[in-house]
Design a protein around this nucleic acid. Structure first.
Length: 860
RNA sequence: GGGCGCGUAGCUCAGUUGGUUAGAGCACUACGUUGACAUCGUAGGGGUCACAAGUUCGAAUCUUGUCGCGCCCA
């Protein structure tokens, strides 16, 4: 037997375990095991450009708790890890750190900067994830920008392109003027703010009362292509069919009736510009309105407009030109102020109401979005909504109500998924455009064997440099991270595979996607879209959604509030086991406040577990028992004492309940069950009952041997019940329990280490006998507590009175144990409680326990 | 505005198909150093389960409504 250190030292345990797990490659997936034992986890590769956050610990640890359980329970767990290290978020970090603008630098130079800046940030994540004990297979670590990841992402592109699910279109697109790139709907955030609703008159061609429109974006008047009016509007009959003249530009535009106009809002007449919002696009298409772009890619008013042409006539060109000049180069917000000034001066601002408006902004830059017509690559989603929803329903959501978020997102989709970004650092779109005579503009894609390609430097087969133009755009970061399952199976389809397609078929769909709820509309959604489009499949059978970590007062952690807790400091202060315990107490989907109480509770548990095993170890060291399993040792006659059988029965029940909870992904329930048994049944009662049988000289008798077997089985089983939550202390304890002479120093976290139900004994074994014993003990404690004497105070006689006749049977074989625990000289049975001595009713109210104390003077 | 979740002890939370007297930890009170643990133990006080109505022999649990908090989507 090994030495038992007096105290548990978390820092030392963590570094020892991490070294050992790494050396033994303890968490490697075994490709030779039968496929039906596979349990594959699609771990989200975190964006390494974000700050380390306590939410990372929270969410990833909850996944690890499940991973450790499933592995211990016998599954062949494949638990990969990767880092998302490219795309817009990464570029923004590099721009901030290096104080540069990607858009104004040479591509190669900027990419080189990115490759220089990112590694230390990635290392921070690697360190943190290692330290919290993620049992990932580090040999499979990947980066989303690596050659292989680029190859697989480009394969995804080629597969979708081939299937007609991905195409290049010139159309109105969501545009972030700050980062100067197209973005997708998922990257839009809607902020609420106060705005001004301006009433502006349009003269009617041929005279008459002007049509007064209401708009929050007067700077777009130049882009007006029509006025829209609800058919039920009082002036509809009079106006529809006539033309209105836009102020300042004097462009005649048709007045069109459309039910989409809100008659309650503003004046009930609005202008349709190209483009102010999604409604404008609908009208533009429905009524075939002219495209009149007034804002450029930087979000500034264009210097020149095609105004005065046939498509864009004006009744007063000089007037239009002077308006264009007055606004040229101004950002939208400034142009708005400027044009309002002009309108006001000319008496054309009839009314200005303060209004509450919802402004779409780019999630990353915070800039108000524009809708600009540019050529972009789109993955078709709108016409597949039903199929996407269908796939969502084939996946088990944990908790189930989180699917609601997914469904409402899919139902609200208004845009196909634009995956092209006008940026530098990302996976290149594998496309060239031909300049060869006769096929100008033809799209050329590489073959699978040519990947990865960079079309800005590589050439398609059979073409020379002057014959093609390589695509300069890169992929949306989600376009690459949404193939995280395929990055691990190393194949998109039978045609597009880097590795062996059989492996892909074996591992996909995966068992589990763990992630937090704020990325349902991105990560979960996009991954489901890709799996549907590539193979008409679901990517995973289960999706487990973790909640958010809140500050201890229940508010959101944020830099602006200054209540952000540094995860490293938290781990330094409490140790990983304790922090993991905290994450294990809250259920999937539930937000949880970072609670000092709960951390304290974890600390107490780790300490208590250490000491409980230490106590068992003290008795076991130096003895020569050879335990196998509880059931076998019972059947072999090694375990004979009724209280031992009772304890192991209760333990067996605990194992069963914890296993069932884990199978339901209710790890917090499993923890609660294990903790309750450990603290109340095992420590508070059983260990007190058994102590007297562990203090023997020489060779143990049958009852004492029975105690040793029981202490062994209880210890190793408890270590396993807590192992998924507190991996370090349990592995150190397991190592000590194994002793020196083992030839197979397996970690307690190895596959198959979870207690097997077959090895347990009957959960109901001697339940009544043990429970009666506990009730007697509780009553005796109550008496002593009321007498304000020590629990060790000597008792002349303990009398059990009342109750049914079966109490005799129940206590029969345990009289010596009752004497030992209560420190009583004799145990008596009586019909009525003796007079004049302190007594207490048992908690189950079946009987009374009376203590006749030994006078203090006689004690000794 | 639509949807989802949550309101249980001073605090953080359990309470899984409706079923004795609603639980745990912390905090509080009193006591006890007992051969693993004072990072401990024992005993105790503390709740109209947000509110209201309904279904039922029986409701924290089911239904409806109201109020409050949070989130998602418009």
């Amino acid at each position: 037997m090994k030495e038992f250190p007096n105290k548990y030292k978390p820092a030392q345990a963590e570094s020892e375990c991490l070294d050992r797990w790494a050396k033994d490659e303890a968490f490697k997936w075994d490709p030779t095991a039968p496929a039906d034992s596979d349990y594959v986890i699609d771990t989200p590769p975190p964006t390494v450009s974000g700050a380390l956050h306590i939410g990372h610990i929270y969410s990833y640890t909850q996944a690890d708790i499940l991973a450790r359980y499933f592995r211990m329970s016998g599954r062949n767990v494949l638990y990969p890890i990767g880092w998302d290290d490219n795309g817009l978020p990464t570029e923004r970090l590099v721009e901030k750190v290096k104080k540069v603008r990607g858009g104004t630098m040479a591509r190669e130079e900027f990419v080189a900067l990115c490759r220089e800046v990112i590694p230390p940030y990635e290392q921070q994540f690697r360190d943190l994830f290692g330290r919290i004990g993620l049992s990932v297979d580090w040999s499979r670590e990947y980066q989303t920008i690596s050659d292989e990841s680029r190859t697989i992402s480009q394969m995804s592109f080629l597969d979708l392109h081939e299937k007609g699910l991905l195409e290049r279109r010139l159309e109105p697109t969501l545009w972030d003027p700050a980062d100067r790139t197209a973005i997708a709907q998922a990257e839009v955030e809607e902020i609420e703010r106060e705005g001004k609703l301006n009433q502006i008159p349009f003269q009617i061609e041929g005279g008459g009362e002007p049509a007064v429109i209401a708009t929050t974006r007067p700077e777009l008047i130049g882009g007006c292509g029509a006025l829209m009016i609800h058919p039920e509007h009082p002036r509809a009959k009079e106006l529809v069919g006539k033309r209105a003249i836009s102020p300042l530009y004097n462009v005649p535009v048709p007045i069109i009736a459309d039910e989409a106009v809100d008659p309650e809002k503003g004046t009930g007449i609005v202008m349709c510009c190209t483009f102010g919002d999604v409604q404008d696009i609908n009208w533009f298409r429905a009524h075939r309105l002219p495209l009149r772009v007034v804002i450029d890619r930087a979000g500034k008013m264009k210097e020149t407009l095609e105004i005065g042409s046939d498509d864009w006539p004006t009744l007063d060109l000089a007037r239009a030109q002077s308006t264009i000049e007055a606004l040229a180069g101004l950002k939208a917000e400034k142009a708005k102020a400027q044009i309002l000034e002009i309108l006001k001066d000319e008496g054309l601002l009839l009314k200005q109401d303060t209004t509450h408006q919802v402004v779409p902004v780019a999630e990353r830059s915070g800039a108000p979005l524009e809708i600009i017509v540019t050529p972009q690559w789109f993955i078709k989603t709108l016409e597949y909504k039903d199929q996407i929803l269908e796939k969502g329903r084939e996946i088990t959501w944990r908790p189930e109500y989180m699917r609601q978020r997914f469904e409402s997102w899919v139902e609200g989709l208004k845009w196909d998924w634009s995956i092209s970004r006008q940026r530098h650092f990302g996976v290149p779109l594998p496309v060239w455009y031909s300049k060869r005579a006769g096929e100008e503009g033809r799209i050329i894609v590489p073959g699978a064997d040519e990947l990865p390609v960079d079309p800005t430097t590589d050439l398609p087969k059979g073409y020379e440099a002057h014959e093609v133009e390589g695509e300069r755009d890169v992929m949306d970061t989600w376009a690459t991270s949404s193939v995280s399952p395929q990055l691990n199976t190393r194949a998109i389809s039978e045609t597009y595979a880097v590795g062996d397609y059989e492996t892909h078929k074996r591992l996909f769909p995966m068992a589990l996607r763990p992630q937090a709820h704020e990325i349902i509309r991105t990560w979960a959604f996009y991954t489901i879209v890709k799996a549907l489009h590539h193979e008409r499949a679901i990517p995973w059978k289960n999706i487990a959604i973790s909640g958010w970590c809140l500050a201890s007062d229940g508010s959101k952690m944020s830099k602006s509030k200054g209540n952000v807790i540094d995860p490293i400091k938290l781990l330094d202060e409490h140790g990983s086991d304790v922090v993991r315990y905290w994450t294990g107490t809250s259920r999937l989907g539930h937000d949880t406040a970072l609670s000092p109480n709960t951390l304290g509770q974890g600390k107490r548990l780790v300490n208590k577990l250490w000491n409980a095993v230490k106590l068992a170890h003290m008795s076991l060291s130096g003895t020569s028992i050879t335990p196998t399993s509880a059931r076998a040792d019972l059947e072999a006659g090694h375990i004979v004492h009724p209280l031992d059988k009772w304890l192991l029965g209760r333990l067996s029940e605990t194992v069963k309940r914890a296993s069932e909870a884990f199978e339901d992904y209710e790890y917090a329930q499993a923890l609660r069950v294990a903790e309750d048994f450990f603290w109340r049944t095992y420590c508070d009662n059983y260990l007190e009952m058994v102590k007297h049988r562990t203090r023997f000289e020489g060779e143990p008798d049958a009852g004492e041997r029975s105690a040793l077997y029981t202490l062994h089985h209880a210890s190793v089983t408890l270590i396993r019940l807590f192992a998924p939550f507190t991996p370090y202390v349990t592995d150190v304890l397991n190592d000590i329990m194994l002793g020196n002479d083992t030839t197979d120093p397996r970690t307690v976290h190895a596959r198959g280490e979870w207690p097997r139900q077959d090895d347990q004994i009957d959960p109901d074994a001697l339940r009544a006998r043990g429970d009666t014993f506990v009730a007697i003990l509780a009553a005796a404690r109550k008496v002593k507590s009321e007498l304000q004497v020590s629990m060790r105070a000597e008792v002349e006689s303990l009398t059990i009175s009342g109750g049914e006749g079966d109490i005799e049977t129940l206590i029969g074989e345990t009289v010596e144990d009752i004497k030992a625990v209560t420190n009583a000289r004799q145990i008596l049975r009586a019909e009525h409680a003796p007079d004049g001595a302190p007594s207490a009713l048992s908690p189950d109210e079946r009987f009374t326990v009376t203590l006749t104390m030994v006078p203090a003077a006689e004690e000794g």
